[in-house]
């Protein structure tokens, strides 16, 4: 199908982009920021979105790139998924981001789609919001008013909704370095290899002397916005994981038991690909798998 008409501007600086987006009058139509367009263009083509103006941020080099900033990694919003995967800084200091990014769509989409675009689009089935949430990332915005720093926990406000105000642009994301002792995994469950996640689990787990000292679990597609599996995180603390293979004969596995709380406080959707009870079940099983993988 074919997009409805819209106007197009390509600002040459972030300031200009903020000015244009800030000056937009909502009464005159929807002004939308365009990053890689890999989610937006299909919506335009299906005529599920009718923006009056697209503000193409694609040439704003200042929003591109990955920087090591001491206690955190800064990922420019326009850094493509492909660039994220190639970044040695990410590999070293934010491996969970790399693990999840590698599962996003397919290579061609990853060449165009951006890290910031995925977060700002806030699709509940998108893989990266749960990761940002699990890592307590901070989303850095710019606007005519100067910009803000929004913790991930306050950024994803609902289905395709974020805390971004009109005229506010996501500039980048601060991903805290977690330090030593952490293991990571992103467990994605989907029906075909290129399909969106039915459920995804982002897990970061820290062992201390053989016992789980800390766990962070973010869930994809278990509600209108990504959620932390806080009950699991609490339940895992202090648990000593059994050796691999133990518990297969029916013996109690405390890690598994803790992960059985994964769907606590979630509101999974019912759609073509799964009903809520199945998603709840998947969240429990996949969280256990993600934690086990993160531990190994």
């Amino acid at each position: 199908m074919i997009p409805a008409p819209f106007d197009y501007v390509r600002p040459s600086s972030l300031d200009e982009a903020c000015r244009i987006l800030g000056a937009a009058d909502p009464a005159e139509g929807d002004v939308k920021a365009l990053a890689g367009g890999q989610s937006l263009l299909p919506l335009l083509r299906l005529r599920l979105a009718y923006p009056s103006v697209l503000v193409d941020l694609g040439r704003l080099e200042e929003l591109r790139g990955v920087q090591d900033r001491g206690d955190h990694v800064f990922i420019g919003a326009l850094t493509t998924h492909d660039e994220v995967l190639r970044s040695p800084v990410i590999r070293e200091h934010a491996p969970l981001v790399a693990l999840a990014t590698a599962t996003v769509a397919d290579p061609a989409v990853r060449h165009r789609g951006t890290f910031g675009g995925s977060l700002a689009h806030a699709d509940p089935a998108g893989d990266l919001p749960a990761v940002a949430l699990a890592l307590d990332s901070v989303l850095v915005t710019a606007s005519g008013a100067g910009g803000r720093e929004i913790p991930a926990a306050g950024f994803f406000t609902g289905y395709l909704e974020t805390a971004l105000e009109p005229g506010e642009v996501l500039a980048g994301v601060k991903v805290p370095k977690l330090g030593d002792g952490w293991g990571f995994h992103y467990e994605k469950f989907h029906r075909t290899a290129q399909a969106w996640a039915v459920v995804g689990v982002a897990a970061a787990v820290r062992l201390e002397a053989g016992t789980i000292a800390q766990a962070r679990i973010g869930l994809t597609n278990m509600g209108p916005a990504p959620v932390r599996a806080r009950t699991v995180e609490t339940a895992l603390r202090g648990v000593t994981p059994p050796a691999a293979g133990a518990g297969a004969d029916g013996g109690r596995d405390p890690v598994r038991d803790a992960c059985a709380w994964a769907d606590e406080g979630t509101a999974p959707p019912a759609d073509l690909h799964a009903k809520p009870d199945y998603r709840r079940h998947l969240a429990r099983v996949l969280t256990h798998r993600a934690v086990r993988a993160a531990l190994s």
Partner: peptide, 18 residues
């Protein structure tokens, strides 16, 4: 139940979380 082969369900988990 697939659950029996997989995660122990909360309601079956008499020990509860620790």
């Amino acid at each position: 139940s697939a659950d029996r082969a997989g995660a122990v369900r909360r309601d079956e988990n008499d020990g509860g979380a620790q």
